[in-house]
Design a binder for these strands. Structure first.
Length: 701
DNA sequence: GACCTGCTGCGGAGTG
C-alpha cells in the first residue's frame, strides 16, 4: 500500500511498537528503487525531541541505502539546512513551524525543491487534531500539493485512540473515506487499577493572608508514594506544574531525611531543556530506579523507556489523555499496565460545596476508568473554524507568492481547501479588515499585496508558530538555567521559591534582561504558574458519572476509604432526589444539573444570560444567582419552546471572544462564527432540556 | 479552574 505510494494511510499502534519502521521500510524501499530521479519523503513531528530521536534511528537504516536524512528545526545549524537546499532528496524531518518558514522563504522555488516529493508522514497525528497548530499543518500540506499540482501520499502515525474517523477526516478532508486504516492487534493488555480515596480537611475558611495550611491529604499521598514507588520506575501525573513542584520537593526531602539516594525527578514545560534531559536520562538508564513527577510533557512519544506504573493524582484532563499516559507502562512482554490513582476529598461540613457532596473528583475518576476499559475516548471536533490560523495563512501565502488576487486566495485556502467553512462574504470582510489595519493592500489591478505592517509581521520569526507565548523571566542559579516563569508572575528579591524540585531564594531580579538569579535555600514556597481555563469535560463522562451515582454497581477498584466516599455520594444523590430533580434550590440560587459536558453547560448559561440571568458553570451544575426553581424552569421551557437559538447570534452577546493569536484581526461577524464553531453546542443544550422536560412529564402521568 | 508545542536571515568575527 505504502510501497507504491498510491493512497493515504493511518497506522495506529501503541507507543514504541514500531510504527515508524512500519512506515519507513516501504518508503525507503521506494526511494532507493527510484534513485535515478531525486526523490523525497517529508516527516512532520510536533516535537523537536522526537525529530532528534527519529533521526538517530532512521539515519542508521538509510545510510546503507545511501539515502540522506536531514533533521530541520530551530536547533539545527545552517550547514545541514543549506546542504539539503542544494540537494533536496532523501528524508526531511521537520516541524510545522519550520515547514511554514520553508514555504514562506522558498515559495518561488518550492516546485523545484519538492519536485521529487513522494510521501508526507505525520507523526503523533492525534496531537494535531482539533488545534490551531493542526489546522496550520493541514493548510501547509494543501499548499504544497497545490504548488506541485498533484496529490502526495499522506501517512499518519497515531497511538491507538478511539476516534479514527476524526483522524481520517483530518488527514485527507476531501476524500477521507478512501484513507486506509491499519490498526495493530497488540491483543488486549491486562490493566490493573486501584483508586484510593484520601480525606482532607473541610473547605478552609477564607483568610486575609494567602498562606494556606498544608493539606493533610497531600502529605499522606507523598508518604504513600514514597513507600510504594521507591525501587521501581514510574510516572506521576498531578495535573499541574505547581503540584509537580510540591511533590518533587516533598519526595526528595523524604529521601534525604531517610538517608537514601533521591529517586524522584520533576519534568514540566517551564523547566529548562537541561533539567528535563536530566530527568529523561534518569528514566532511560536501567541501573537505578527513577520516578518522574510530570505534566503532559511526558505524554507524547519521546523515548523514555518502559515504566512500571502510572500514578494519577486527581482526575485526568480526558479519557484519551489517560489512555496515552497508561501506554507508557507495562511495555515489557507479559507485564500489565498499572494505574494507581489518588482522589482528594474534603470532609463534609455545613458549608460543604455541592461538588463535595457528590464527590465530583472521585466519581469523575471512576467514570473515566470505566470509559477507558470500555475503549471509549473523546472524539476530536473537526468543526472548528480556526479563524486565527486563517489570518496567518493569508499573510503567509501573500509572502510566499508575492501577491495574489482575492479569487485565487479564496480558492486556495477556502473553497475546497482547509477553511471551507468560511463563506465568500466573510472572507471578503476579512480581507477588508486586514486592509483597514494596513496589513495588506490592493494595487490598481486588484492584486493583493503585503503592506509594510504585513511585511513586518511576516518577517518576525514569531510569525511561524500558530500559537502565542508569554514573555518570560529566565531563572538562573550560578551559571545554570533552571527554567522560566511568566513575566505576569513576578518574584521579588529575597523571596523563597520551590523550583525544579529544590528550594531557592531570589538574589536579584533584572527587568531589562528578564533574568531572576537564585541561590540554594532551606525554605521555599510553591510558585503559581499562569494557567488557561480548565479542562473541558465531555458529555459522555458526565452521563457516566450520573449512572454511577444513581446505581448500586460495585466498583471493585476502589479502596476502603473510596468505597465509603462513594456510598456517601450515592446517599447524597438519593437524598437530593437527583434521579428525578434536575433543578435544585440552593439558598437564593438555582442549580441546573443536566449531566452534560462543559460545552453544553457553557452554552446553556449563555442562553440564560441572554435573557437577563447571571450565573456560572460550576462543573456538574450550572449555578444561577438570585433566582428560584420555578422562575428558571419557566425560562428554560420558554427557551426550548422557541425557534432554536442561532449559535452565531448567541455568540454575538459574548464579550471576550479573542482567544487565539490573530483573533483580534477577525471582523465581528467572522469572530462570532469562529467562536460558535469552537465553544458552543446549542443543539446539545436544547436536546438536554428536551430530555429532562419529557422525563418530567412522563413521571407526572 | 490544565497542560503543551515552536521560531529566520544576515553580518561579522574567528578559524583552516
Amino acid at each position: 500500500m505504502i510501497l507504491n505510494g498510491g493512497c493515504d494511510v493511518i497506522i495506529a499502534a501503541s507507543t514504541a511498537s514500531g510504527k515508524t519502521e512500519a512506515a519507513f521500510f516501504p518508503i525507503l524501499t521506494n526511494l532507493a528503487y527510484n534513485s535515478k530521479a531525486p526523490s523525497l519523503a517529508l516527516y512532520v513531528s510536533p516535537l523537536k525531541a522526537l525529530i532528534n530521536d527519529q533521526w538517530r534511528r532512521l539515519d542508521e537504516l538509510a545510510e546503507r541505502l545511501e539515502i540522506p536524512v536531514t533533521p530541520w528545526h530551530g536547533d539545527i545549524g545552517r550547514a545541514k539546512k543549506s546542504s539539503f537546499l542544494k540537494d533536496p532528496r532523501g528524508c526531511l524531518l521537520i516541524t510545522p513551524e519550520s515547514l511554514e518558514s520553508l514555504l514562506l522563504h522558498h515559495g518561488s522555488s518550492l516546485a523545484v525543491l519538492f519536485a521529487g516529493l513522494r510521501y508526507i508522514v505525520v507523526d503523533e497525528l492525534h496531537a494535531f487534531l482539533g488545534t490551531e497548530r493542526g489546522k496550520q499543518l493541514q493548510a501547509l500540506l494543501h499548499r504544497i500539493e497545490k504548488v506541485l499540482g498533484r496529490r502526495i501520499c499522506r501517512v499518519g502515525l497515531s497511538a491507538t485512540l478511539g476516534d479514527m474517523e476524526g483522524a481520517k477526516q483530518y488527514l485527507r478532508p476531501e476524500t477521507h473515506g478512501t484513507v486506509e486504516l491499519i490498526v495493530s492487534k497488540d491483543g488486549a493488555q491486562e490493566l490493573k487499577v486501584l483508586v484510593k480515596g484520601m480525606m482532607d480537611k473541610p473547605v478552609p475558611p477564607k483568610r486575609a493572608d494567602s498562606e494556606q495550611p498544608e493539606s493533610p491529604a497531600k502529605v499522606a499521598i507523598a508518604a504513600h508514594m514514597f513507600r510504594g514507588l521507591r525501587g521501581s520506575s514510574n510516572l506521576v501525573f498531578p495535573n499541574s506544574r505547581q503540584e509537580v513542584e510540591y511533590y518533587s520537593d516533598r519526595l526528595r526531602r523524604l529521601c534525604e531525611s531517610q538517608g537514601v539516594p533521591n529517586e524522584f525527578w520533576p519534568h514540566h514545560g517551564n523547566l529548562s531543556k537541561e533539567i528535563r534531559e536530566e530527568t529523561e536520562a534518569a528514566l532511560k538508564q536501567t541501573e537505578r530506579p527513577a520516578t518522574a513527577i510530570c505534566t503532559s510533557t511526558l505524554e507524547l512519544g519521546i523515548d523514555i523507556g518502559p515504566v512500571k506504573s502510572i500514578v494519577q493524582i486527581g482526575p485526568p484532563p480526558s479519557v484519551a489523555s489517560l489512555r496515552q499516559r497508561l501506554g507508557r507502562s507495562g511495555r515489557r512482554k507479559g507485564e500489565p499496565m498499572i494505574l494507581r490513582a489518588y482522589s482528594v476529598e474534603r470532609q463534609i461540613s455545613p458549608d460543604s460545596r455541592f461538588s463535595d457532596l457528590l464527590r465530583e473528583g472521585m466519581v469523575q475518576m471512576i467514570a473515566m476508568v470505566r470509559l477507558l476499559t470500555g475503549n471509549w475516548y473523546e472524539p476530536m471536533s473537526t468543526e472548528m473554524l480556526h479563524g486565527s490560523t486563517l489570518v496567518q495563512q493569508i499573510l503567509s501565502v501573500l509572502a510566499q507568492h508575492g501577491g495574489l488576487y482575492a479569487q485565487q486566495m479564496w480558492e486556495l485556502l477556502c473553497g475546497a481547501g482547509p477553511f471551507s467553512m468560511v463563506s465568500k462574504n466573510h472572507f471578503l470582510q476579512l480581507l477588508r479588515k486586514l486592509g483597514e489595519e494596513e496589513i495588506i493592500f490592493q494595487d490598481a489591478t486588484g492584486l493583493l499585496l503585503l503592506a509594510p505592517r504585513g511585511e513586518h509581521i511576516t518577517e518576525d520569526y514569531r510569525f511561524y508558530a500558530a500559537f502565542t507565548s508569554d514573555e518570560e523571566f529566565r531563572i538562573v542559579a550560578g551559571n545554570r538555567t533552571l527554567g522560566s516563569m511568566p513575566v505576569s508572575r513576578p518574584l521579588t528579591e529575597g523571596s523563597f521559591l520551590i523550583f525544579a524540585g529544590r528550594r531557592w531564594q531570589v538574589i536579584s531580579v533584572s527587568q531589562t534582561d528578564k533574568v531572576i538569579d537564585v541561590q540554594p535555600a532551606a525554605a521555599g514556597a510553591v510558585p503559581g504558574f499562569d494557567g488557561a481555563s480548565g479542562a473541558m469535560v465531555h458529555d459522555r463522562v458526565r452521563q457516566e458519572m450520573c449512572e454511577i451515582l444513581g446505581s448500586n454497581w460495585p466498583v471493585p477498584f476502589l479502596d476502603e476509604t473510596g468505597q465509603m466516599l462513594l456510598q456517601e455520594a450515592r446517599g447524597n444523590y438519593a437524598r437530593l432526589g437527583l434521579d428525578d430533580n434536575w433543578l435544585l434550590q440552593d439558598g437564593n440560587e438555582t442549580r441546573i444539573i443536566l449531566w452534560r459536558g462543559d460545552k453544553v453547560n457553557d452554552t446553556l448559561l449563555l442562553m440564560l444570560q441572554s435573557i437577563g440571568y447571571k450565573g456560572l458553570n460550576d462543573g456538574v451544575s450550572v449555578l444561577i444567582s438570585d433566582s428560584t426553581v420555578e422562575k428558571v424552569r419557566s425560562s428554560l421551557a420558554f427557551l426550548s419552546a422557541q425557534k432554536p437559538v442561532d449559535p452565531v447570534g448567541l455568540a454575538s452577546s459574548v464579550q471576550n471572544k479573542v482567544r487565539e493569536k490573530w483573533d483580534a484581526l477577525l471582523p465581528n461577524d467572522l469572530l462570532d462564527v469562529n467562536f460558535a464553531s469552537s465553544c458552543l453546542n446549542v443543539a446539545g443544550a436544547l436536546d438536554a432540556l428536551k430530555v429532562h422536560f419529557t422525563a418530567q412529564e412522563l413521571r407526572r402521568k
